[in-house]
Amino acid sequence: MARQKPPAGTPATVALTAAGIPFSAHPYVHDPAAPSFGLEAAEALGVEPDRVFKTLLADTDLGLVVGVVPVTGMLDLKALAAAVGAKRATMADPAVAERRTGYVVGGISPIGQKTRHVTVVDETAQLFDTVFVSGGKRGFDVELSPADLLRATGGAFGAIATWTR
């Protein structure tokens, strides 16, 4: 019997497909010099930036935690710690984030990570029918409903973003 090839795609798209979660793939031309990968994605895809979410890892006294916030905002580390019942949170070392997720910084997806982490998605995701998150590499986002994002990550909604506008 012939050996079957694994499905093509990123770990995020493979995980979504395996779970039967509907999504749309959105590749775009990535500029490595872009000052903000998330804002670059919003512009390249022609969507409002509040619908594009970035994936950040924080180190807490309970271990690494994933925070998913709009690219127009910043991760509130105190709020993230409180949301998961930790005492404190600091941004994770980028090398540790890459090693634990299997993705490169700027292309870390909350879906299909090498090690599953506690995940909190900012509650503003619920304002939209669909949101965009990294599909697992720079220049590639996936679009899915906020409920399906929670289902794919085993996450929860929380008020974890702050805005400087």
Rank of each mutant, 00 (worst) to 15 (best):
L57N: 09
Y103W: 13
V118M: 14
G112W: 13
L56Q: 02
D93N: 04
T115H: 11
A92Q: 02
T101R: 01
M74G: 15
D76I: 05
V104W: 15
T101Q: 02
T115Y: 08
V96S: 03
E40S: 14
A83L: 06
A81S: 04
M91E: 01
R100Y: 00
A81D: 05
G67H: 12
G38M: 05
K78E: 12
E40L: 12
I108C: 07
A89D: 03
I108W: 05
K114C: 11
R99N: 13
V65F: 02
R99T: 06
K54L: 08
V84R: 11
S36R: 00
L80S: 09
A95H: 04
T101E: 08
G106L: 10
V96W: 02
E123N: 05
R51E: 05
L56M: 11
R51Y: 11
L45E: 07
H117D: 01
T101Y: 11
T124R: 07
L39D: 11
E40M: 14
V118K: 09
T101S: 09
R116Q: 11
T72F: 14
K114S: 14
A82P: 13
V121I: 15
A97S: 14
F37V: 06
V71T: 12
P49W: 15
L64N: 00
T72S: 03
A95N: 08
L62W: 12
L45S: 11
T101D: 06
F53P: 02
A97M: 12
K87G: 14
T60L: 02
A82C: 04
A42M: 07
A44R: 15
A82L: 14
K114R: 13
A79D: 01
A83F: 01
K78F: 08
F37E: 10
A95L: 03
A42Y: 04
A92T: 08
V52S: 14
V68I: 10
D76C: 03
G107A: 07
A41G: 04
T119V: 09
K87L: 12
V120N: 09
D59L: 13
L77D: 02
K114G: 08
K78P: 14
Q113A: 13
A95M: 06
V52W: 14
T60N: 01
R88T: 08
G85S: 10
A58S: 10
V68Y: 12
G106K: 08
V121C: 12
P110M: 14
P49C: 11
S109C: 10
A92E: 03
D93L: 01
Q113N: 05
V68M: 13
L57H: 03
P110N: 09
H117Q: 03
M91T: 04
G73H: 03
T55K: 06
T90R: 15
G112T: 07
G107C: 10
V69C: 00
G107L: 02
L77I: 00
V47E: 01
M91W: 00
F37L: 12
T72W: 05
G85Y: 08
I108G: 14
M91R: 08
L56Y: 01
L64P: 01
S36H: 06
K54P: 03
G46M: 03
D76Y: 02
I111L: 14
I111R: 15
L56G: 03
F37W: 10
G67M: 06
V105I: 12
K54D: 01
D61C: 04
A82S: 15
P70M: 11
R100G: 01
V66Y: 00
T72V: 08
K87Y: 10
A81I: 00
